[in-house]
Design a protein around this nucleic acid. Sequence first.
RNA 1: UCCAGGUUAGCUCAAUGGUAGAGCGCCCGGCUGUUAACCGGGUGGUUGCAGGUUCGAGUCCUGCACCUGGAGCCA
Length: 431
Amino acid sequence: MAEGAFIRDVASFEGREVEIRGWVYNSRSSGRIHFLILRDGTGFMQAVAVQGQLPDRAFQAAGFAPQEAAVVARGLVRADRRAPGGYELELRDLEVLQGSPGYPLTLKEHGVEFLMDHRHLWIRSPRQHALLRVRAELIAACRDFLDSDGFTLVDAPILTPAAAEGTTTLFEIRYFDRSAYLTQSGQLYNEAAAMAFGKVYCYGPTFRAEKSKTRRHLIEFWMIEPEMAYCDLEQCLEVEERMVSAVVARVVERRRPELAVLGRDVSKLEKIRPPFPRISYDEAVEMLQRAGHSIKWGDDFGAPDESYISQQFDLPVFVLRYPAACKAFYMQPDPARPEVVLGADLLAPEGYGEIIGGGQRIHDLELLQARIREHGLNEANYGWYLDLRRYGSVPHSGFGLGIERTLAWMAGLEHIREAIPFPRLLHRIYP
RNA sequence: UCCAGGUUAGCUCAAUGGUAGAGCGCCCGGCUGUUAACCGGGUGGUUGCAGGUUCGAGUCCUGCACCUGGAGCCA
């Protein structure tokens, strides 16, 4: 009786007979010898069917099994340097559970639209498989870092009664007999949680109904958002650079084979260590003006501006103290220069741009009320939020890290649409 | 919403205004070590849609739809 095994572990089964339950990734045949590349979710492995070494029924099946047929393969694990991966399965039996000819994704090139229409099948391919494994590692690394650093996970709601920030376009939905909105950030709820637990984070999807059509925008994307009570901007930045460095190091350590499949130059990631360089918004504007960008003090950065700044550094770079007018209403003004806020964006290197936005929040009740009015927001919607400034308000800070943008940088992607299993884009909500 | 490029076989792409093709897929056959296997044969088209110019349009013109890239907006 053959033992069940995963392809990931076959090296430890050398010389033994195992059963692999998976799918046919590709097959070749020379008549009396068939080669099947099997995949089982943990890896890819060549299986060889030699006439006479397995029942005729199974040998025939090996010759006819179409691409992506579900198969249960039993055989002897052998080291063989002719096999991709170094080990192969010498088949003793093969059962085809189900399959159909004409699998849409051949091993040749396909266009973006065709691949996106078949995203449900595309995620089976080696590159997408490697990428989504890196994504899983990235998320686990973020959570493990925070969990072991004294943070408590306190999830924020996805259905919200009003705009969190008032700046971006929200998806409006029916909530029984009234309107509600899909969350654009868990931050406001995080602030409540921080006053209850000290150091908290939330992890979940966020939704922006903006008609952005670029390689760095998704309509639905995932953010991890830490928030800390008794924390100023400086302390917040320190957490950010420690977290990003730890996460990069862990992905490089544990997902090196996947990064190799993706063709990522890992040496660039191995340089990511704190401290990260810091420039002020003022300096960034000067830098851009020297490079010929048409930007003046007070403007927010456009995509080419952000990209240029990030290309000037080998490490992620903090841009600090933006004009208050560019940022959300809750950002704490710099006491020394009230026209700028104690906030910072973190721009990933190699032109990838913003992966984190964050900073210190307003903790003074009257100032916050004034800002809500200045931004044309309805104070009635923020009653609970203002309560946080009435009952034990303290300086606090936090940030949000965009998972897909961070993954796009770490994996060296051309477009963010590959960084999430089923992307929602301006003109795409299928599959 | 704006700008640019594109739309030809299931897929990826060719085709001076003059007979619509290739590779892959799929089907049939061959091959006992293949590496996106290979070899032979077969299958496959309202050239995005609607008009127009022309003896003749995949090719030129107009409109529309859709795709891709970028901008703006934003993380």
